[in-house]
């Protein structure tokens, strides 16, 4: 494929270009390597994610960071190759056309192999591996029923029957299962610091799990909040409550005081 009807014409005219090709390719490859190394160093130096406070956050952030590492050379390749051509191959006054290169078996084959391999790699990791990791610990220590309605969150600790509104209290290092429901329209139960999100759908119980790994609360970290992430009407923006993660004994005391 790719070869037009004219591949043999005009060989003499672009011989000069063909002769220059190896040098150009080496130059571009060198620039690309250099730019990629610099870009990877920069990417690695930047803190992309906000406060991370759960096992799930580590999985999600690792996936993001790995994709950054993989996407950077692709980005720099297009920028360097395209940029090099844009600077070096600009029109210089004469009316001549460029060389009629319609195809290059080597370039297309390489492109196909590299893009296919890259796609399959990101499917496997961080894609499938990340998903498997997320689902690796299905046993819950604590079950909380989350009820969303316009425009508030209500929580019920299933074992003790304690019901609260407002701040969500959680013990550190315990596996929590959220069973999420909605009484009116679709909402979404999102805790940015935990990197978990699941819609609250009327007529349906959805679930998500998390293991908090850090102490903290909304007062110290804005990401420690339950935020509605699905447009639900006029109160949507302010449909959030704080999340507080405490030590187990402190949590037990709080639960007892709350009537558990």
């Amino acid at each position: 494929m790719g070869n037009g009807d004219h591949s043999t014409t005009s060989q003499t005219k672009d011989r000069t270009h063909s002769d220059r090709q190896p040098g150009r390719l080496a130059t571009v490859a060198f620039i690309w390597l250099l730019v990629t190394v610099l870009a990877e160093i920069t990417v690695a130096a930047i803190e992309w994610q906000p406060f991370a406070a759960s096992r799930e956050a580590t999985i999600s952030d690792d996936a993001f960071n790995l994709l950054m590492v993989l996407a950077t050379p692709v980005f720099t390749f297009v920028i360097v190759v395209g940029g090099y051509a844009l600077l070096r191959d600009r029109h210089r006054g004469d009316d001549a056309d460029g060389p009629p290169i319609r195809t290059s078996r080597a370039f297309i084959a390489t492109w196909l192999v590299v893009t296919t391999v890259l796609s399959v790699v990101v499917i496997i990791t961080p894609g499938f591996t990340g998903l498997d990791e997320l689902r690796a610990e299905p046993e819950a220590d604590l079950v909380i029923d989350v009820r969303a309605e316009r425009w508030s969150w209500a929580y019920r600790y299933a074992d003790s029957g304690v019901e609260t509104q407002g701040n969500l209290m959680l013990p550190i290092n315990r596996r929590v299962l959220f069973r999420i429901s909605s009484t009116d329209v679709i909402h979404s139960f999102w805790i940015p610091a935990f990197r978990i999100k699941k819609d609250a759908v009327p007529g349906q119980i959805t679930t998500t799990m998390v293991t908090p790994r850090k102490l903290g609360s909304f007062d110290n970290q804005e990401e420690m909040r339950v935020q509605c992430a699905e447009l639900c009407g006029v109160g949507h923006a302010r449909m959030f409550t704080g999340v507080t993660v405490v030590e187990q004994d402190e949590f037990d005391a709080w639960l007892a005081a709350a009537g558990g």
Partner: peptide, 13 residues
Amino acid sequence: FLADVPVDIQLQD
């Protein structure tokens, strides 16, 4: 990035 589910869970919406 958004097609990757562990990342999308955070970045969706």
